[in-house]
Design a protein around this nucleic acid. Structure first.
Lengths: 161, 161
DNA sequence: CTGCGCCTTCCCATGATGGGAAGGTCAACC
DNA sequence: GGTTGACCTTCCCATCATGGGAAGGCGCAG
């Protein structure tokens, strides 16, 4: 079958199939005399494996390892499990991070009236670091009128250039 | 102050400060005769705003909007709140997605003995379709000999597309 | 033979960030 | 003064996974 059919059958786009071949994630497909790639069910099966691993959030590099384990008759399920659990940790870490950001932002939004007035704790929070424990927003000598209307046009610095 | 100092004070790397300037996220910095960029506290303040917005997961394009709202005396807090809440939704959606993937994978891992034997439901799950419990019999020639592609059989269905 | 759809390769773009090279500037120290 | 080392400048490349599109070749129905 052609790459288009393999793509449809596996759920991996033709573009990606070529890419996976180019980076050596999957073995180079057979070629017909015309140069067309030729796929058999085994190839499609492998591509489906890759797609499902992607669907579970595995990076291509990890999938490379998974493919190796898949094809290794002497693999131990422990290896696979360890890889999977490490990945689970990673996914959960990312999810936690996203949720934390969402929580902080929702906290700010809750304090925001959401009316027609400009006063807004969300903006205020972004202005003066609500995010705990990151970097203390240096209290630079706000000598000039910079404490209220920041994004105004550039104020003329004395001298220079 | 130089870009390095502005970077340290704002928590945004010098590299990124230049980048933000290049894409027009922040106004071009003043230049000294030498070509060095010159930053004042207001610039640092704005960079800090950007960094905190990034820390909350806003994309640079959204931060562009936020900066506009920040500097707009006529903004309504409702606008800001709407933007923030939309972003919260997005963050939570992503978090949910990650968590779902993690759950599925952990489910597979729980079913995996993790011993010396090669049998592994994780691999099996990746091999065959949708994760749940269903298992459409896979009877492809799963010869794991890596590249023994036996029958280069011609696909009998000519009508492409 | 024509026409159309598929295939090929090659280049470019995304978003946010960083690495590093080649060369200019600043400030301090002897 | 001269040297040195830290800093700055621009420019290009890489990441990660994916896609868009151009230019040209192949396959098959009509």
């Amino acid at each position: 079958m052609n790459i288009g059919q393999a793509a449809e059958a596996s759920g991996v786009s033709a573009k990606m199939i070529r890419h996976y071949e180019a980076i050596g994630l999957v073995p180079p497909a057979e070629r017909r005399e015309s140069g067309y790639r030729e796929y058999d069910p085994e190839d499609v099966h492998r591509l489906g494996f890759v797609r499902r691993a992607r669907d579970l959030g595995f990076s291509l590099e990890r999938i490379r390892v998974l493919l190796g384990l898949w094809g290794d008759p002497g693999r131990s399920s422990a290896e696979v499990k360890a890889l999977a659990l490490a990945h689970v940790e990673e996914l959960e870490g990312k999810a936690r991070h996203l949720r934390e950001m969402a929580d902080v932002l929702r906290g700010l939004a809750l304090a925001c009236d959401g009316d027609e007035r400009p006063d807004c704790p969300i903006i205020a929070g972004l202005e003066a670091g609500p995010i705990p424990a990151s970097r203390p927003t240096v209290d630079w000598p706000t000598s000039r009128s910079s404490s209220a209307r920041p994004p105004s046009r550039r104020s003329p610095s004395p001298g220079r250039r």
